[in-house]
Design a protein around this nucleic acid. Structure first.
Lengths: 143, 143
DNA sequence: TATTGTTATACTCTATAACTATA
DNA sequence: TATAGTTATAGAGTATAACAATA
């Protein structure tokens, strides 16, 4: 009973904290930066290697037509390539280009600068907490 | 040098995780639910009492025409009222209705419930990590 | 027939520019 | 004139429905 109450309180606190931080992070976005989904897509390709549009859509939790558009923008910008799947003609393989990889690094550095600066003031154990929390939030997001 | 690199990596990972979780939380206000700015506007009115459209626009960091639309939607839904300003005919006063106040409470409860349900599956030490992280995120957001 | 991806279309949210009413 | 708010219009992002190609 007590535990349930504490869970509910944590849920409320965590929701407010995460939402507020996300708002702050969004406000740090500069003009020519890529959108959140575009960045996340490049990031996913960087971590997983070439993926199909369907896999990317599932991973970023958008509908396939939305991912088609994202890929189109990234392809026009020369940040990804779209090649035919070796064994299944219906599918395609989206891969990061060298330019895409560079853009990812540069864009991240710019957008992370604000948060990174804040992290400088934290203690080692606090950084460890945030590192673990990031992993947990990822797991919860995929549930 | 190594520490700097790790901090930058954590900043990036944390930004992505927090943004993704915020997106998931937003997606829980399904169907008839209000948008983030609509909710934030109700919340601001709840905390500050009646405000003018200009004050609301400044507080939510949107342009005046955007706030005009938000207020229009909320007024049509019966969640706020728009009355003429007592001393300045150019201005208006937007106030929360009883129904708007109830909606605010109900929406918060629903989103808390979704996250709370997810937290049920976590271990005690993981909950402790999230509890500590929420506090840290609040501190970072205020910096 | 089922699956993968795309095209066509529409909706939401936000912005800038132009306009109205009041100070 | 200057200010508060609205209307008109446009752009970004995402969704559903319909379609094409392949398994």
């Amino acid at each position: 009973m007590q535990e349930l109450t504490e869970d509910a309180a944590l849920a409320s606190a965590l929701r407010i904290s995460v939402s507020r931080m996300a708002r702050r992070l969004r406000s740090q976005q500069a003009g020519d930066a890529l959108s959140a989904t575009q960045m996340a897509t490049l990031s996913t390709l960087s971590r997983h290697g070439p993926l199909t549009p369907g896999e990317l859509a599932a991973h970023e939790r958008v509908q396939p037509p939305s991912m088609t558009r994202v890929i189109g923008v990234l392809e026009c910008a020369g940040l990804v390539t779209r090649t035919s799947h070796p064994t299944d003609g219906r599918q395609a393989l989206v891969a990061l280009t060298t330019e895409g990889s560079g853009r990812l690094v540069a864009d991240r550095a710019r957008r992370d600068a604000w948060l990174s600066h804040l992290l400088d003031d934290l203690e080692a154990d606090e950084l460890a907490t945030l590192r673990a929390a990031a992993t947990l939030l990822d797991r919860l997001s995929q549930a």
